[in-house]
Write a protein that binds this DNA or RNA. Structure first.
Length: 428
RNA sequence: GCGGUCGUAGCUCAAUGGUAGAGCACGAGCUUGUGGUGCUCGGUGUUGCGGGUUCGAGUCCCGUCGAUCGCCCCA
């Protein structure tokens, strides 16, 4: 048996890089679900959910063997049946797998889907980076038109705006296609061959394995060298060039803030043509969302070309930003009433009444463990309930309930049978 | 995977190697059927865990787990 690092210290704790989402953050997460669902519906994206566990090969082939995700961040293990499985590191490859497996092209053309859920990458945890984190994604599968590249950007921006985030900008580039990228890569390698002595050791590794990534090194010397490097825009084929131009045109038509960035590459091999990130002007190195076109993924996974474009949003990062900026989580919350019970008899009757109120769609809070009226009112106050419904011995006997307005302190006694109507009246 | 910092009450944090504390929160009471303000009382803890040095360790050393920052990379 291997050592069980989770079992060591007496109180159990989350395993490294995992985190609990606690009730105190409920408003943030629920605002994302609610707004995300609303935005998805308005933009006509359908829900899809794929399993958290997939075959390793899906990502090795889909994302690319030379990428960091596959090279060192795969959260993989052997099952009892001795298959090697992996906790999905991202959402796009599984969705393409699902598209091919279930022939989803027949469902609609193009297929527009959204997903959300946990993703896993085995790397060193840091702020804004966890081993388990959540992404929300949108994918359009089965269309090559730049129309959808930009629609993907729009749905992302609309989502973030609806959450209350302002000042967003798109960083955009194109990485070409199979026709033009090899030519460019060759030129890039040619250029860096003469510079090999001057670049950092990570860049030497990039030079060997994934030359395009030379472009986003952050070391100062490498940045300087990069200034003289050829840029892909000069090597695009006819198709990629006009695709990019169309995308930029549509971006301008829609008045999206954007900035072309010839050095933007992104870490997954499946991208072709358009790539982009959604950033905040102040903190441009930590993207809130990233995406692009992946016209070859279908072919890699299924043997035929399926053009597609998509985006994924990093939910922890978004929430972190919303908190930092003290943006109010946009959530429509129901007003609540607090049900106070005093005495055993009242507690028994109380549960039936509470349930009756809830069946009438009234949000009812209670804390029957606190014995005294005083303590229950204290909690009612803390929960900011509009009304307290008080059921004590006297009320039980008289078959009434006392309704207390928590703001004014005014109390009225109403017959139990009218409780729903009387409560609703006072909630308005 | 590499380098730095940190880990004390539910939370935020204090304690020259010498009796573990404060604020907030929480609980009880002033007020036995009435919240918000006020007053009184209460420390709720295996100082992350394990070992070592020492008469004595929250404090020093080693290990470990976790967090955090930078690198790598990314959402």
């Amino acid at each position: 048996m291997e050592k069980d690092s989770t079992k060591k210290d007496k109180p159990y704790q989350t395993v490294r890089g995992m985190h609990d989402i606690l009730p105190k953050d409920e408003d943030y997460w629920r605002s994302i679900w609610e707004i995300g669902n609303e935005i998805s519906e308005i933009h006509d994206f359908n829900f899809i959910e794929t399993p958290i566990l997939e075959a390793v090969g899906l990502f090795e082939e889909g994302i690319g063997e030379a990428t960091d995700i596959v090279e060192k961040e795969m959260f993989s293990f052997k099952t009892k049946g001795r298959e090697i499985v992996v906790l999905r590191p991202e959402g796009t490859a599984p969705i393409m797998r699902s598209y091919i497996q279930h022939h989803l092209g027949h469902f609609s053309s193009p297929l527009k889907v959204f997903y959300w859920g946990p993703m896993f990458r085995y790397e060193r945890p840091q702020s804004g980076r966890y081993r388990q984190f959540h992404q929300w994604g949108f994918e359009v599968i089965g269309e090559a038109d730049p129309f959808y590249d930009v629609q993907i950007m729009l749905v992302t921006l609309n989502f973030l705006k609806a959450l209350g985030i302002k000042g967003l900008k798109i960083k955009i580039n194109t990485v070409g296609c199979r026709v033009c990228r090899p030519t460019y890569r060759k030129r890039l390698v040619q250029y860096y061959r003469t510079q090999k002595r001057n670049i950092c050791k990570d860049c030497i590794r990039r030079y060997e394995k994934n030359p395009l990534r030379l472009l986003d090194c952050t070391v100062r010397e490498c940045k300087e060298i990069r200034e003289g490097a050829p840029i892909i825009l000069d090597y695009l084929c006819q198709a990629c060039n006009s695709h990019f131009k169309e995308v930029l045109g549509l971006i301008e038509d829609n008045e999206i803030e954007y900035e072309p960035d010839p050095h933007l590459v992104r870490g997954l091999d499946y991208y072709s043509k358009t790539v982009f990130e959604v950033v905040l002007p102040k903190n441009a190195d930590r993207a809130l969302a990233g995406g692009g076109r992946y016209d070859y993924l279908g072919e890699v996974l299924g043997g035929r070309t399926i053009p597609a474009v998509g985006v994924s949003l990093g939910l922890e990062r978004i929430i972190e930003y919303i908190k930092e900026k003290e943006i109010d989580p946009k959530r429509k919350k129901k007003p609540s009433v607090f049900f106070v019970v005093v005495g055993e008899e009242a507690k028994k009757k109380g549960l039936c009444l509470i349930n009756k109120l809830r069946l009438s769609n009234i949000k009812v809070l209670e804390s029957v463990g606190k014995q005294s009226l005083k303590n229950q009112l204290k909690i009612a106050n803390k929960t900011k309930s509009k009304l307290s419904l008080i059921l004590g011995q006297r009320e039980c006997f008289e078959e009434t309930v006392m309704i207390r307005n928590m703001k004014t302190g005014v109390q009225e006694t109403v017959p139990t049978e009218n409780i729903v109507e009387e409560t609703k009246k006072r909630l308005r």
